[in-house]
C-alpha cells in the first residue's frame, strides 16, 4: 500500500516536471536545428541560428539596451529602496504605515496599467518615449521589491551595531554607509538582482514606453510576427540562459547567507 502511494507520488512529480520543462526543452533543442523550421524531426545540431542572432545588429543593439536599462533602473531602485527602508526602520515617523503602503502599492497593479498611465502622462507632458522612459517604468515596478526585501531584513541586531558606531562617534552618514549598508548587502544585492531579472524580461511597459531604441523582449516580440523560426529559438535560449545565470547567482548569495546564520 505504502509502496503504491510512493510510486504514484513519484509518477506525479515526474509528470509535472515533464510539463514544466517541456517548452524549455523544445525551445533549446530546436535552437540547434539545421533546417528552417523548429519542428520535429530534429536535424541538428547546428550553431547557424546562434551565428545569425549575433550577426543581427538590431538584436545585439536590443540586447545592449536591455542590459543598460536593467542595470541602471535596478541600481536606482535598490538605492531608493534601501534609503527608504533605512528611514522607515530606524526612525519613528508619522504615518509610517501609510508611507509603507504607498511604497509597495505598485506591486498590486498590473504592469499594463502602470505602463498605460506613464504613457498617457508622458504624452500629455510632451516627454518623448525612449529608453529613459522605459527605465523610469522599470524603476517604478522594482522599487517596491527592493524596499520590501531590504526593510524585512533590518532587524534589532543591526540596530545595536549602529548604536555602538554612533557611541563611538560615527556621524549619521558614516553609520549608514559604513555600518548599515555592508550589513544589509545581501538583501540589497538580492533586491538588485531580482530587479535586473524582472527588468530584463519585462515586455509590456517597455513596449508601451519605447520608440526607436527598444529592449530585447520588444525586439523579440516583433520577430515573433515571422512565426516559428529557429532563430527565435536561439534568441529565446540566450535570454533564458541569462535569466538562469542571474537566478543562480542570487540563489548562491542567499544560500550562503542562510548557511552563515
Amino acid at each position: 500500500m505504502r509502496r503504491l502511494a510512493d510510486g504514484l507520488a513519484l509518477g506525479y512529480v515526474v509528470a509535472v516536471y515533464a510539463f514544466i520543462y517541456l517548452p524549455v526543452a523544445v525551445l533549446v533543442l530546436f535552437s540547434f536545428q539545421e533546417s528552417r523550421l523548429p519542428i520535429p524531426p530534429f536535424d541538428g545540431p547546428s550553431l547557424r541560428w546562434y551565428a545569425a542572432v549575433f550577426a543581427d545588429r538590431r538584436l545585439t543593439d536590443a540586447l545592449a539596451n536591455s542590459l543598460l536599462v536593467a542595470l541602471l533602473s535596478s541600481a536606482l531602485a535598490a538605492l531608493l529602496g534601501f534609503l527608504a527602508a533605512y528611514g522607515l526602520a530606524r526612525y519613528r515617523l508619522p504615518a509610517s504605515g501609510l508611507q509603507r503602503a504607498l511604497l509597495t502599492a505598485p506591486l498590486s497593479v498590473s504592469y499594463l496599467i502602470i505602463g498605460l498611465g506613464l504613457l498617457i502622462m508622458f504624452s500629455r507632458l510632451g516627454v518623448p518615449r525612449s529608453l529613459l522612459t522605459v527605465g523610469i517604468g522599470h524603476t517604478v515596478i522594482n522599487l517596491p521589491l527592493c524596499f520590501a526585501i531590504t526593510y524585512s531584513q533590518m532587524g534589532a541586531h543591526q540596530e545595536n551595531v549602529e548604536r555602538a558606531a554612533r557611541d563611538l562617534g560615527a556621524r549619521e552618514w558614516q553609520v549608514m554607509l559604513l555600518v548599515t549598508a555592508p550589513m544589509l548587502l545581501p538583501a540589497i544585492l538580492a533586491g538588485f538582482l531580482l530587479s535586473v531579472t524582472f527588468s530584463w524580461d519585462e515586455f509590456i511597459i517597455a513596449f508601451l514606453l519605447s520608440r526607436f531604441d527598444v529592449t530585447l523582449p520588444v525586439e523579440i516580440w516583433s520577430l515573433l510576427r515571422s512565426g516559428l523560426n529557429p532563430r527565435n529559438n536561439a534568441v529565446g535560449s540566450v535570454v533564458f540562459l541569462f535569466s538562469f545565470a542571474l537566478v543562480l547567482v542570487m540563489e548562491l548569495l542567499l544560500f550562503r547567507r542562510g548557511r552563515r546564520r
Partner: peptide, 20 residues
C-alpha cells in the same frame, strides 16, 4: 532626518505611479 531618507522613494512613487 528620517523623513529625508524616505523622501526620494516617496517622491519617485508619487511622480511616476500616483500622478500617472
Amino acid at each position: 532626518r528620517g523623513f529625508a531618507f524616505v523622501l526620494p522613494a516617496l517622491l519617485w512613487t508619487a511622480a511616476f505611479f500616483l500622478l500617472p
